[in-house]
Simulated assay, not measured.
Amino acid sequence: MTVKQKRRAPATAAVLILAALLTGCSIPVTGEPVAGGAGPVVDVAGGTDDTLRKDFDASPQEVNDYWTDDKFGGATAPDLKPGQDTLTGDQATGVVVHPSTGVGPDVDVKAIAPTAAGDPYPATGLAAATQGRLYFSIGGATYVCSASVVNAPTMDLVLTAGHCVWDTYGKQLAENIIFIPADAANGQTQPYGQWAGVSTYVPDEFTSEATSDASGATSGNGWAYDFAFIRLAPNAAGQKIQEVTGGQGISFGTPPEGITVIGYPSAAPFDGQSQRYCASQAATKGYAGYRVDCLMTPGCSGGGWLTRLDPATGAGYVTSVTSRGDGSWLEGPVLGQRALTLYNDALAEGS
């Protein structure tokens, strides 16, 4: 494998004033979206000194061959226990990337009834194709998380949790990454195929400052940066994933207006066989960003937190990803300035 590590001493982020961030306001329109294609292009600043990037030596075919039915079925979910220290999180930017379907009509944020139960997700439209399951290996063991296809000019990006590609206990990167949109029955149902990871982009703040012990107990300010982007290889037909599934929008620190959390909880009482969701009309302040009441279990890590989700078209804006929880609530980091920089790093090196 090839690992490019560009390190610097992590800068001290400005304190995020969540009281202001969590008040309702409309998402600003930035740029002109192109329906059915890439949305507005965020300025690309190139690579930075605070991103851990990994290119995989294994070819997409080798990664696909690695995943047998037994490995899919035997993959377990990372089980992390949240610390109780209030963390300094990412800075809000107000930058928005629209869904690949373009800017939809105004959405009634009360249209999706609140639920904390982890109910089966009634996926429609864009949401039916862009949310999926992420399989990976670390140290020979196989694991599973959740992830979302996000709109990008390179048309090859998924967004997930940092701990789904970086082992905070053993301090090593994941390998053999496979993403299956709309996965069901442990990889047996693949309506949009399976897609091999080409490279990962993880913030240095997470790899350097987020830790966990053998029991899964977590600590460190890095958990406020528990997010990562993954570039995926084209399929055998030469298509990029966004050409097949479309891509959700991204809200880089814009105040959320209603949140729908989607993922594949795998620990009891769930079995990881299908998508589940929780919904809230407002987020509260968590240790590391946002928090919502939700009973979903490990396996939903990395799943998208969609704001202004249109239940008719399935289009929305990913405003966070599932990081940690205690069985009654989940929390996710704010996708702000650092996440935007990471996104630009991935665009700069995309194809």
Rank of each mutant, 00 (worst) to 15 (best):
E175D: 13
A283K: 15
G83V: 03
V107T: 12
G272L: 07
P311Q: 11
R291H: 07
V292K: 13
D49C: 08
F206T: 10
C294P: 02
T297N: 09
D90I: 07
M296Q: 14
F206L: 11
G193T: 00
Q61K: 14
P122I: 08
Y121E: 02
D69C: 07
G118V: 10
V103E: 02
G102E: 04
G303N: 03
P60M: 10
G162R: 10
S208H: 06
L80W: 03
G46Q: 03
T211H: 12
E349W: 02
T68L: 14
R276K: 13
A19S: 02
T245Y: 04
S320P: 03
N235K: 03
T93N: 09
G258S: 04
T68P: 15
G249R: 09
L21M: 10
T160M: 08
A217K: 14
G89E: 04
P181N: 08
A38K: 01
G118Q: 04
A279N: 08
S148L: 03
K4I: 12
Q281V: 14
C278L: 12
G187A: 03
T86N: 11
R7G: 02
G46H: 01
C145T: 04
A117Q: 14
D119A: 12
G238D: 03
G350I: 00
D293W: 11
E331V: 05
S26M: 11
N64R: 15
R338C: 08
Y135T: 01
V34Y: 09
T154W: 07
T211C: 01
G263R: 00
G102L: 07
I17F: 12
E205K: 10
D85A: 13
G247K: 07
L52G: 13
P122K: 10
G193P: 03
A315S: 05
T86I: 15
E62Y: 09
G104P: 12
T23F: 10
E175Y: 13
T200R: 03
G302W: 04
V198Y: 12
L330P: 06
T142E: 15
G132N: 04
N235D: 10
C300D: 06
A237I: 14
C294W: 12
G253T: 05
A339T: 11
